[in-house]
């Protein structure tokens, strides 16, 4: 961690001295995380491309103001998240687009028997089909914020506190949204199973 911080410091110093290859290194170190956030929050391909560039132009512009209160990657992820959030606001796309009635039904259905039944079916289905593809489709059906949180936690393996730093959401809210997102994923997988059976 300390070593990583020292590398970040060194890279930032070089960029501020006008070394463009140091900025190239920053891009290649962080673009995986940036792209994941953008791809999970934005659907339009051209907008994704523009946003990715906009993020790094902002990073370059604000780099001299980076205070090392967090990892450089976390700071860049925060800029990415906020840029996407502004984009969604501008396009009037809801970040948590969930049908309230559907959601209520879903979260009230905590009967363990129902859950286990669908769970075993889901598990069998997952094993039977190409699991990864099905899951990708199920993730795509989630609202932008859930998709992002799932990716940051499970795919990029960030801690709750790092996710809190990036999104600005309280830790309890992050945990709650993650719980709902996983539950929603299971529900989507079960629905998929039922359609296949028909």
């Amino acid at each position: 961690m300390k070593q990583k911080g020292a590398i970040d410091r060194d890279l930032i110093k070089k960029v501020l001295d006008g070394n463009s290859s140091a900025f190239e290194a920053i891009i290649s170190n962080t673009k995986g995380l940036v792209i994941q956030i953008i791809y999970k929050m934005v659907r339009n391909h051209e907008d994704r491309k523009d946003l990715a560039q906009e993020v790094y132009l902002k990073v370059y512009d604000k780099l001299d103001g980076f205070k090392f209160n967090s990892k450089l990657s976390t700071w860049i992820a925060t800029i990415t998240y906020n840029t996407c959030l502004n984009y969604l606001k501008k396009k009037k796309i809801p970040i948590l687009d969930i049908d309230k009635n559907e959601e209520k039904e879903l979260w009230e259905k905590i009967s363990i028997n129902t859950f286990c039944y669908s769970d075993n079916q889901t598990e069998a289905y997952i094993f039977k089909k190409e699991r990864s593809q099905i899951l990708t489709l199920a993730i795509e059906k989630l609202p932008p914020l859930y998709k992002t949180l799932i990716t940051l936690y499970h795919n990029k393996e960030l801690s709750y506190s790092e996710i809190t730093d990036i999104t600005g959401l309280p830790e309890g809210t992050v945990k709650n949204y993650l719980y709902r997102a996983r539950k929603k994923l299971k529900e989507n997988l079960s629905l998929n199973y039922k359609k296949e059976e028909l």
Binding site: I27, S28, I35, K49, A52, I126, R131, E157
Partner: peptide
Amino acid sequence: GELKSQPEPVLDFNLTKLVL
């Protein structure tokens, strides 16, 4: 485990070049 092994999105453009 399945979520962890989800493939990363692949870019069809050179982001570094565009930014630089």
